[in-house]
Structures are given as C-alpha cells and as structure tokens.
C-alpha cells in the first residue's frame, strides 16, 4: 500500500514541475556525472517502472506514473547524451548557436519550415542576457569545444560581470566548475 502511494506521490511531483531540469527530475545535484545519473535512474525504475504497477494501479493512475517515468527517462537520456563536456552547457533557447549542435538534440534553432518553435524555458529567455554577455558566453562555448575548461570558466565569469542578473549564466558556470572539479 505504501509503495503504491509513494509512486503516485513521486509521479505527481515530477509532472507538477514542468520546468524542472534533468538533474532535478532525477533528484541529483546539478553537474552530477553519468554514474550518479544511472544510479538515480535505476532507483526510479525499481520504484516506478510502469510494468511493476500494471496490476495495482487504476488505468488513470498508471497513465500518470507512465508519463512521469517517461519524463525521467528523457531526463536520464539528456544527461547520458552529454558525454562530452562540449555539450554540457545548455543551449540558449531561441538563439541560434554559435556552433552547430554536436551530439544531443537540445533544441537550438527553431525548426521553421511550417512551424517555428517557442523557447521551451521562459525562465532562461535569452533576450534577458545582455549582448556583451552573449559574446562572452559564445567564447565560453568555443573554449569548451577546444576542451579548454579554465578558459571557459574565465569567459563565463566575464559574461556574469557584464550581466550579473542572469541565472542562466550562473548555472552554466556552476556546471563547468563542477566539471573542472571532477577532472584530476
């Protein structure tokens, strides 16, 4: 009985937070490595995989759990896709990237043949970043592509100096610094 209510509570929490980051969905600290993401996802699978509940939940409840689980799977895949540090920084939604996206399909440029995309994360609206900060941010991206972590940290700090309000830049810096800390 408690397992049943646990999984329903978990599913409601996941679905309720539409703007949660992948790490938040998996309940791990930002910038966590692949191993932590895998462990977290296995833990979720042991508790919430829809197969485990197909006899105990009603159809509506099962749909809720399946949806939450499917979003956790997408979160895990997002972290797993970011194997290289290059793609670790989130692309700024709605603004064309300075470099073509490499591996992961994080939306960058809006698909615009017959429809165009709207920024997915309004909280990180790119227009809120000053143009000077954006230039530094692009330089940070290029540094990351070269594998130059200290360079990226420097450029991100410059960007934050030009635009101290941007939460997006701060979280990006935190992610890169976490990456630096992991490297020997």
């Amino acid at each position: 009985m408690s397992a049943r209510s646990d999984v329903l509570l978990w599913a409601q929490r996941v679905i309720g937070r539409k703007d949660a980051t992948a790490c938040q969905i998996l309940d791990i600290p930002a910038g966590s490595g692949l191993d932590a993401a895998q462990q977290a996802f296995h833990k979720i699978a042991r508790m919430a995989h829809p197969d485990l509940h197909r006899r105990t939940l009603t159809a509506d409840e099962l749909e809720l759990v399946t949806t939450a689980y499917a979003r956790a799977a997408a979160a895990y895949q997002e972290l797993r896709g970011q194997r290289t540090v290059t793609t670790r920084i989130r692309a700024i939604p709605g603004v064309p990237a300075a470099v073509p996206p490499t591996t992961q399909a994080i939306p960058t440029a809006p698909p615009s043949i017959k429809a165009i995309a709207v920024p997915e994360e309004p909280g990180h609206a790119p227009n809120k970043m000053g143009s000077k900060a954006l230039i530094y941010y692009r330089k940070a991206e290029l540094a990351l592509r070269r594998g130059d972590l200290p360079g990226a940290v420097l450029q991100l700090k410059m960007a934050i100096a030009s635009d101290p309000q941007s939460q997006f830049l701060r979280s990006a810096l935190a992610e890169v610094e976490a990456e630096v800390a992991r490297k020997p």
């Binding site: 996802f41 829809p50 399946t66 949806t67 689980y69 499917a70 979003r71 799977a73 997408a74 895990y76 895949q77 896709g81 992961q104 399909a105 939306p107 440029a109 698909p111 615009s112 043949i113 017959k114 429809a115 165009i116 995309a117 709207v118 997915e120």
Partner: peptide, 27 residues
Amino acid sequence: TAGGFTERLLDKNAPIPIERSRVFTTS
C-alpha cells in the same frame, strides 16, 4: 526542419518508455 534537415526528438538507444515535448507556434 528548415533547409531539409532534421531535428532529433527522441534518440536511438534512449530508454523507453520515454516522452518529450516541443512547443510550436504559427509562422
């Protein structure tokens, strides 16, 4: 997407069941 390219929504080898959404608007 524009220019005859594709935008990937769900990757090969991603765990299933999986769900991802995108928001579109009119042009």
